[in-house]
């Protein structure tokens, strides 16, 4: 029962992450949507699969390894893409921009 709840929650969150990717105005806010929602949804779905499967214990550990690697890799790649987007000249639609004050 609890794994079904985790699965439905993960699918719900991933759908809203994709919707945020379509609706937000610029790259940085889109990165907000994808980094958080993909990480949370993928970890939730993988926990559900690890609870529901009847693989041996090493098979269940592999699900947790994938979840841990997603939690490490996804923020790192989003950080790299945000920095590269700023360096390549995409201006953010922002009320305050302290990064431009320090790197003219």
């Amino acid at each position: 029962m609890i794994e079904l709840l985790f699965l439905l929650f993960g699918i719900f969150i991933m759908f809203f992450g994709a919707l945020g990717l379509l609706r937000f105005p610029d790259v940085y806010t889109r990165l907000h949507a994808t980094a958080k929602c993909d990480t949370g949804g993928a970890i939730s779905i993988l926990l559900a699969l690890a609870l529901a499967s009847d693989f041996p214990i090493t098979g269940k550990l592999k699900f947790l390894v994938i979840a841990f690697m997603i939690a490490m890799i996804n923020p790192m790649v989003s950080h790299a893409i945000a920095r590269a987007a700023y360096k390549s000249g995409i201006k953010p639609k922002a009320v305050v921009d302290m990064y431009a004050w320090d790197n003219p």
Partner: peptide, 9 residues
Amino acid sequence: TLTPGTLTL
């Protein structure tokens, strides 16, 4: 990056 509303640049 994973806490609400913020993203490290």
